[in-house]
Design a protein around this nucleic acid. Structure first.
Length: 438
RNA sequence: CGGGGCGUAGCGCAGCCUGGUAGCGCGCCAGUUUUGGGUACUGGAGGCCCCCGGUUCGAAUCCGGGCGCCCCGACCA
C-alpha cells in the first residue's frame, strides 16, 4: 500500500481522553476513532490488525474442531424470556423496539440464540459433540466504558458454544477450548495465564479466565510465581489425545482471579504468590444444562430417553486483544507489533522522494515485495524524512526498509527491526530475501 | 447510579474570575529551503466558543436548563 494513497491520520499529540498507553497509541497511530462513549470506528490500519487477530482466532478454533457460523446482532426478546435472562440482564442490555413494537435487543452474548438453533436441528446423541462459534459484534451498555477498545460498549467477540451428551464429554470439550486458547494467545505473542474464575451471570461451576498480566489491567489476580517461566505449550497434546493430564498439569499451578482467590486455601507460600493486575482476554465456562433445560434443548440418548445437553461457552475478546497486545508490546516511540498481527510486515521508506534514482529503486522494491506476497506500507510521501521515521516507529511495523541516495551509490539499503531497533545495511537482494523468507 | 472534572479550529490548550468584535502551539494549504532519523523561514486557510433560554447596549465570559465526554467506585470479552 502506498501511503500517499492510504488513510492513516496519525497524531503527534495525545488526545486528552486517553488514559492508558494502548488507547493513546491506537488514537495516535490512526487505528480508531471514537464516535460515542465506548463505541469506535475502526480506521483502515486498525481494521487490518483486527482482521489478523480474527484470522488467528478462527484458525485455532477450526483446528480444535469448532465450526464457524454467524448469528445476528439483533435478537428477539422472546428467547431471553425463555431463559429467564431478559429481566436478569438488567440495564446492560440494549433494548430496542421495531416498527411493529416488537421487543428486540442488541445481543450482549448468544447462549439463547445458539441453543435455539441447536434444539431445532440436533435431535440425537449421535450428532454430538458439537462446537459452534462465531465472531460477531456485541453490545453491553457498560456503566462506565473506558480505556479505549479495552472496555468498549460495542466490541468484537468470538463466542463458541459446545454441546455434549454428558458431563464427561462436556469437560473434554472444555479442555479442547482450554488448549485452543493457549495456542491462540501464544500465536499473538501473549502470555495469557488461565486462572480459576467466577462464572458470573453466565452461570456454571467450572470457569477459567485467560489473563495477561499488566498494571493497567482491570482484574485483580493472584498466581504462583512459577507462571513467569512456565512454557505452557511444552509437550502439548493433540486434540484427539487425552487432554486431562495436560489440563491437570497447568491447572495445578495456582492462579485465580481475586473473587476466586482464597488466601488460606490456595496452598501457595507467601513469597511465591504474585499479586498482580491483569487483562482478561478470554473466558471459558462449563455451565451444564443451565440453558438447555429452560430452552428445551434435548437429544435422544442411547437408551431413547430425552436428555438435556451439557453446554459450555467460550469467549475471546477480539477487539480487546488489539489493546491488550499493545499494552504488552510497545516502547516510548510507539507500538511494536508481533509479526503475526502486524497490519503490514514492512514499512518502505523513501528518504529522498523526488530523486529519480531513489524513486525508481523504491518503486522496484515495492513491486518486488508485493510480488513475493509481502505486505508492505510504502511511505512515498514527499514530506520531510524525520516525520516518516516517527510515523513508522509509532505504527510499529516489524520491519523498516530504508532507501536513500547515499546507500544507492554503494548498493545498500537499510533494514531495521522495530522490536530491537537493530539497523543493518544490506544489499537490496538480501533485504528482499530476509523479508520474503519468514 | 453516587462523587469529581471538562466542552473554544483536525489535535493539545489559553482566554472566562473582573462581559467590549477569539488567540497560541502542533497539524493542514502555498512558496523558499533539500532535509540521513519528529528541518528552518515566509505567507495563508480553517471557529453556530456543545445546545436552548435568560440578564445586558453588548455574552466564549454572568445566570438557569439540557446534552455530550473524561476520571474515581459497584459489572464484564
Amino acid at each position: 500500500m502506498r501511503l500517499s494513497a492510504y488513510f492513516l491520520p496519525t497524531l503527534k499529540e495525545t488526545p486528552a481522553e486517553a488514559q492508558i498507553v494502548s488507547h493513546r497509541l491506537m488514537l495516535r497511530s490512526g487505528m480508531i476513532r471514537q464516535t460515542s462513549a465506548g463505541i469506535y470506528a475502526w480506521l483502515p490500519l486498525g481494521l487490518r490488525v483486527l482482521r489478523n487477530i480474527e484470522r488467528i482466532v478462527r484458525e485455532e478454533q477450526d483446528a480444535a474442531g469448532a465450526l464457524d457460523m454467524l448469528m445476528p446482532t439483533i435478537q428477539p426478546a422472546e428467547l431471553w424470556r425463555q431463559s429467564g435472562r431478559y429481566d436478569d440482564y438488567g440495564k446492560e442490555m440494549l433494548r430496542i423496539r421495531d416498527r411493529h413494537d416488537r421487543e428486540m435487543l442488541y445481543g450482549p452474548t448468544n447462549e439463547e440464540m445458539i441453543t435455539d438453533i441447536f434444539r431445532t436441528y440436533i435431535k440425537s446423541y449421535r450428532e454430538l459433540p458439537r462446537n459452534l462459534y462465531h465472531i460477531q459484534w456485541k453490545f453491553r451498555d457498560e456503566i462506565r466504558p473506558r480505556f479505549g477498545v479495552m472496555r468498549g460498549r460495542e466490541f468484537l467477540m468470538k463466542d463458541a458454544y459446545s454441546f455434549d451428551l454428558d458431563a464427561v464429554g462436556a469437560r473434554r470439550s472444555y479442555q479442547k477450548m482450554f488448549l485452543a486458547y493457549l495456542r491462540t494467545f501464544a500465536r499473538m505473542g501473549l502470555r495469557a495465564i488461565p486462572m480459576r474464575a467466577d462464572a458470573g451471570p453466565i452461570g456454571g461451576d467450572l470457569s477459567h479466565e485467560f489473563i495477561i498480566l499488566a498494571d493497567t489491567g482491570e482484574s485483580g489476580v493472584f498466581c504462583h510465581s512459577a507462571w513467569a517461566d512456565t512454557d505452557m505449550l511444552a509437550d502439548a497434546p493433540g486434540y484427539d489425545d487425552d487432554l486431562q493430564p495436560f489440563f491437570d498439569r497447568l491447572t495445578d499451578i495456582y492462579a485465580a482471579t481475586d473473587e476466586k482467590h482464597d488466601p488460606t486455601a490456595c496452598g501457595v507460600l507467601p513469597d511465591e504468590l504474585i499479586k498482580a493486575r491483569g487483562i482478561e482476554v478470554g473466558h471459558i465456562f462449563y455451565f451444564g444444562t443451565k440453558y438447555s433445560k429452560p430452552l428445551g434443548a434435548t437429544v435422544a440418548g442411547p437408551g431413547g430417553d430425552q436428555v438435556p445437553v451439557e453446554m459450555g461457552s467460550y469467549g475471546i475478546g477480539v477487539s480487546r486483544l488489539v489493546g491488550a497486545i499493545i499494552e504488552a508490546s510497545h516502547d516510548d516511540a510507539g507500538i511494536i507489533w508481533p509479526d503475526s498481527v502486524a497490519p503490514f510486515k514492512v514499512g518502505l521508506i523513501n528518504l529522498k522522494s523526488g530523486d529519480e534514482a531513489c524513486d525508481q529503486s523504491c518503486d522496484d522494491l515495492y513491486a518486488d515485495l508485493r510480488t513475493a506476497g509481502v505486505e508492505v506500507l510504502y511511505d512515498d510521501r514527499s514530506e520531510r524524512a524525520g516525520v516518516k521515521f516517527a510515523d513508522m516507529d509509532l505504527i510499529g511495523l516489524p520491519w523498516q526498509l530504508v532507501v536513500g541516495p547515499r546507500g544507492l551509490k554503494t548498493g545498500v539499503v537499510e533494514l531495521k527491526r522495530r522490536a530491537t531497533g537493530e539497523r543493518q545495511e544490506v544489499s537490496r537482494d538480501s533485504a528482499l530475501a530476509r523479508l520474503t523468507e519468514s
